[in-house]
Design a protein around this nucleic acid. Structure first.
Length: 578
RNA sequence: CGGGGCGUGGCGCAGUCUGGAAGCGCGCCUGCUUUGGGAGCAGGAGGUCGCAGGUUCAAAUCCUGUCGCCCCGACCA
């Protein structure tokens, strides 16, 4: 391919709207162009990379025994009503607008495909003899994201590989656990081939439902999630999920009597600790939530934060929301800021750390008053105790290893769904005894656009992108340094043709431009290898072969170039696998 | 949805406060020179200043409304 016949709109200047490196570089390198908020055109170079990622995903899914199909983006809303997700997804679920009961009004754009695949299963997966089976697609998803951001990292339209498996059982041969593990391993292979420094972590399953899930994270500052992992790699989890080792008993109490103190207008942890001259660690933070229409009170140490996902799990509810000021006043009989567990008539779940506190300070359930000398167990019952707080700097993993915190991008997620969707949509199969049972399901997603952005985030420098060979738009760029010089152009063209014949993806930069200009574009786009053909080196009978990632440059005769390139590409491909 | 910022040639920006001929840089086109890390000179094309009302002799600039985009937060299968 000749550069002048291709379509590569690179720019020197950094677009003002782009902040994260992958977004800036994708725009500058001419990989994407924004169409609207959260919607991007993939330009030819960017689309080549996206297709390569797609092919890697497809290869590994097929190798893992999954079967490809293709579902539509338009779904009948009835199916979403059956699973209750019209309400659960809210504005994220995009709907077509029509007049009255026009078909458009009954159509949604799929943000994911559990409903469509479950309906398919209900229709066709009727016998245990057909199980297990794992079906997948690579397809465009639509989501009404409130705030798309960071280039292609969070968009309203994106390419996803979603797979759904169906089983008779969880354990044993053909069970959900077996396929889940196969998908987990396939994901390792996929992200490995893409050269991503990925970390599999325990995750919350969120509104998709199900019990167990793992996410595949790529650490980078551009990410929105927090990865919590042990220094030695023995533990890794999403912050939403991360468990912490219990803290030792502070042992600093003398079991003072309860005393009510006047704390006018001091309702926050910071104000109270300053007013009373104590550390936030001496306070018991009392937060009122609402779950299933009932108040739910969470207690954590003053310097800790409630992890709402953990709280919901400990409470055995689907989710919790912070209580309204009215509800707080109703439960505590006081203004917001003066809640405490002593004498409180509500369901209370205490964080484990609370059981180690002595002579603590809490709200008095009376406006402008707190109580000191609070001793859990003595002054209020510890009926429910659980790990309900967010992990924080200084915490240790359950196995005792110190924890580190990093921002990261989620590139894949695997779930054990169980029978959530098959129950809701009555998708059953008949066992050998002719008994009907709901299908047991798993689902497995990968964000292809995110792989592309994450790869750039993880592999770039001040000059531009450093593509891994496996997903580079072209393997090699040949820079003809003076296209008006006949021997230069002839040599460059010959090398181009020979490389192409050898199966190498090669782009010939045949623009009539100065060398520095071409080098900068080549570095910006990040071709793994660059061949320089110029008068100067050609005079010595050689061309130069430069490696983008290392900056290493070899001089070699044109006749040896093809074998050097194919050898180098093979080596890089192996080295870059993570 | 709350807070903040921004809409001016393809891209990056100035001009808006204080109304009075739409500018600069990059890129693009033509010609000549130049060719190993974003070349030089000369000439040239390209913008109803997001949109709609209003005020005014006169609006990119002031007022009202509206749409869009970005950032922070909330939310996030």
């Amino acid at each position: 391919m000749n550069w002048t016949r291709y379509f590569i709109p690179t720019t020197k200047e950094v677009p003002a709207d782009a902040f994260v490196p992958s977004h800036q570089l994708m725009l500058r390198a001419g990989l994407i162009r924004q169409v609207g908020s959260g919607a991007y055109t993939y330009l030819p170079l960017g689309y080549r990379t996206l297709r390569k990622i797609e092919q890697i995903v497809r290869d590994e899914m097929n190798a893992a025994g999954a079967i490809e199909l293709h579902m539509p983006a338009m779904h009948p809303i009835e199916w979403w009503e059956q699973t209750g997700r019209v309400a659960a997804m809210g504005d994220v679920l995009l709907r077509l607008q029509g007049r009255g009961e026009d078909w458009r009004s009954r159509t949604v754009l799929g943000p994911t495909h559990e409903e469509v695949i479950t309906e398919l299963a209900r229709a066709y997966l009727v016998s245990y003899k057909q199980l297990p089976i794992n079906l997948y697609q690579i397809q465009t998803k639509f989501r009404g994201e409130a705030r798309p951001k960071s280039g292609v990292l969070r968009t309203r339209e994106f390419l996803m590989k979603d797979a759904y498996s169906f089983h008779e059982r969880v354990e044993g041969p053909g069970g959900l656990n077996e396929t889940y593990q196969r998908m987990y391993d396939a994901y390792r292979a996929i992200f490995g081939r893409c050269g991503l420094p990925y970390v599999p972590v325990e995750a919350e399953s969120g509104a998709i439902g199900g019990s167990v899930s793992h996410e595949f994270m790529v650490p980078t500052d551009a990410g929105e999630d927090i990865l919590v992992r042990a220094a030695d790699g023995s533990y890794a989890a999403n912050l939403e999920r991360a468990e912490v080792a219990p803290l030792p008993d502070a042992g600093d109490g003398r079991h003072e009597p309860l005393r009510e103190v006047h704390t006018p207008g001091h309702g926050t942890i910071e104000e109270i600790s300053r007013f009373l001259g104590c550390t936030p660690q001496k306070l018991i933070k009392t937060i009122i939530y609402e779950a299933n229409g009932e108040p739910l009170v969470a207690l954590v140490r003053g310097d800790h934060e409630v992890n709402e996902a953990k709280l919901a799990r400990a409470a055995g509810v689907r989710g919790v929301t912070q209580a309204s000021p009215e509800l707080i006043r109703q439960v505590t009989g006081a203004e917001v800021g003066f809640a405490g567990p002593v004498g409180l008539q509500a369901r209370i779940i205490a964080d484990r750390v609370v059981t180690t506190m002595h002579d603590a300070v809490t709200g008095a359930n009376k406006t402008d008053y707190h109580v000191t000398g609070v001793n859990p167990g003595r002054d209020f019952a510890l009926t429910e105790v659980a790990d309900i707080r967010l992990a924080m700097e200084g915490d240790r993993a359950p196995n005792g290893q110190p924890l580190r915190f990093e921002k990261c991008i989620e590139v894949g997620h695997v779930f054990k769904l169980g029978t959530k969707y098959s129950d809701a949509m009555s998708a059953t199969y008949l066992d050998a005894q002719g008994q009907a049972h709901p299908l047991i399901m798993g689902c497995y997603g990968i964000g292809l656009n995110r792989i592309m952005a994450a790869a750039i985030e993880a592999r770039h420098n001040d000059k531009g992108i450093c593509w891994p060979v496996a997903i580079a738009p072209f393997h090699v760029v040949i820079c003809a340094l003076d296209v008006r010089d006949e021997s230069v152009l002839a040599t460059a063209r010959r090398l181009h043709d020979e490389l192409e014949a050898a199966g190498v993806e090669v782009l010939l930069d045949d623009r009539d431009a100065r060398p520095g200009f071409k080098f900068n574009d080549a570095d910006l786009i990040g071709f793994p290898l660059r061949i320089n053909v110029g008068k100067r080196s050609l005079g010595d009978g050689v061309v130069e072969l430069a490696v983008r990632k290392s900056g290493e440059v070899r001089k070699l005769p044109p006749a040896e170039t093809v074998s050097a390139v194919t050898g180098l590409l093979k080596t890089l491909l192996e080295q870059e696998r993570t």
